[in-house]
Write a protein that binds this DNA or RNA. Structure first.
Lengths: 141, 141
DNA sequence: CGCAACTTTTAGAATTATTCCAATTCTGAC
DNA sequence: GTCAGAATTGGAATAATTCTAAAAGTTGCG
C-alpha cells in the first residue's frame, strides 16, 4: 500500500511544478488512492488514511484531494448527486456503475471514440472534457 | 407558458397509468419545465411556479419532480455535484455544459452512437442507461 | 541558529441541496 | 356527507462539502 518510490517522485514533481509542497498528508492520501483503485469517496479515503496518519482531519483530506486533482494526478468521478469519488487512472476512460454491487469499473475509451463523440457537437461547440458513464448490471459469467 | 391541452393530457395519462393524481401542483411544475427548456434547478422551478401558485412549498416541488421523473416525463441532469437540473426532452441526447455562460445545451444522440458506445463494454456488462456530457465553451460564430 | 513570511493543517462552524416527518388538506368513492 | 388514501406543507434533519480563523510546519536568509 506504500507508494512506490516512482509514483512518489511523480507526486513530488507535479506538486513542485505547481509550487506546492510534498507533505506527509498529501503523500499518504495519494498512495491510498493508488493502493486500492476502487474509486473511494472522501470519507473512505479519510478512514484509510487514518490507519497511517491517525491525526489527520477530514478537512485536510478534502484539501489534499483538491490539490491532487488540480495537479492532474487524480480524477473526480460523479454519479448523480452521490459523493464524489476519486480515481488515479489518468488515461481516457468511461465509468460503469454497477447497480447491484455499487462497484465502479473503468472502461477504456479509444481515442477514436472520443473524437467521434466530439463530432456530434454543432459548429462552434468546443468540448474541453467529455464525461461518459454507464449504469447497469454485470452478469456473472 | 401554460401547458397545451395535449401535453397536459400526456401528463394526466402518465400519472393515471402510475396510479397517481393530476394535481394543480404537478400540472404547473410540469408546464414550467416545458415552458422554458433551460434545464432549471429545483429552486428555479420553485420560483417560477410560485408566480402561478404562490402558496406552493419547495418540498412539493421536489415531490412533483420526483413523480414526474418516475413517470418518465422529465429527465434529471447532473453536472459534477451541482444541483440537479430538469429537462423535458425525452429523446436520447447528451448535454453540453457551457462554462462561460453556464447554459446547458441538448446534443442529439443518434441511436447508432449509443449502440456503438455499448459495444465498448466488456463481456457481461449490461448498461441500462448511458450518460454523456461535454463541458467546454461555445465560440461566438 | 533564529526569525519572517509562507504554506499547510486542523477543528469546528457554516452552507447547500435535498430528504424526512408529522400534521393538515384534498379528493374520490360509496 | 363520511372515510380512506393521496398529496401538500413547513420546518427539522441529513449529508457532503466548503469556509474560517488559529495553530503548526517549512523555507530561505542573514
Amino acid at each position: 500500500m506504500k507508494a512506490s518510490a516512482q509514483t512518489n517522485d511523480a507526486l513530488c514533481a507535479k506538486l513542485a511544478g505547481n509550487g506546492l509542497r510534498a507533505t506527509r498528508q498529501r503523500e499518504v492520501v495519494y498512495s491510498v488512492i493508488l493502493g486500492k483503485r476502487d474509486h473511494p469517496t472522501a470519507e473512505e479515503i479519510f478512514s484509510r488514511v487514518k490507519a497511517r496518519l491517525s491525526g489527520i482531519s477530514l478537512a485536510t483530506v478534502y484539501n489534499c484531494l483538491e490539490t491532487l486533482v488540480q495537479c492532474g494526478l487524480v480524477r473526480q468521478v460523479n454519479f448523480e448527486r452521490e459523493s464524489t469519488r476519486y480515481c488515479p487512472n489518468l488515461s481516457e476512460h468511461a465509468h460503469f456503475h454497477d447497480e447491484s454491487t455499487g462497484r465502479i469499473h473503468d472502461i477504456d475509451l479509444p481515442a477514436e471514440t472520443t473524437s467521434r463523440l466530439r463530432h456530434l457537437l454543432p459548429e462552434g461547440f468546443e468540448a474541453a472534457s467529455i464525461e461518459l458513464s454507464f449504469r447497469g448490471r454485470t452478469k456473472a459469467s
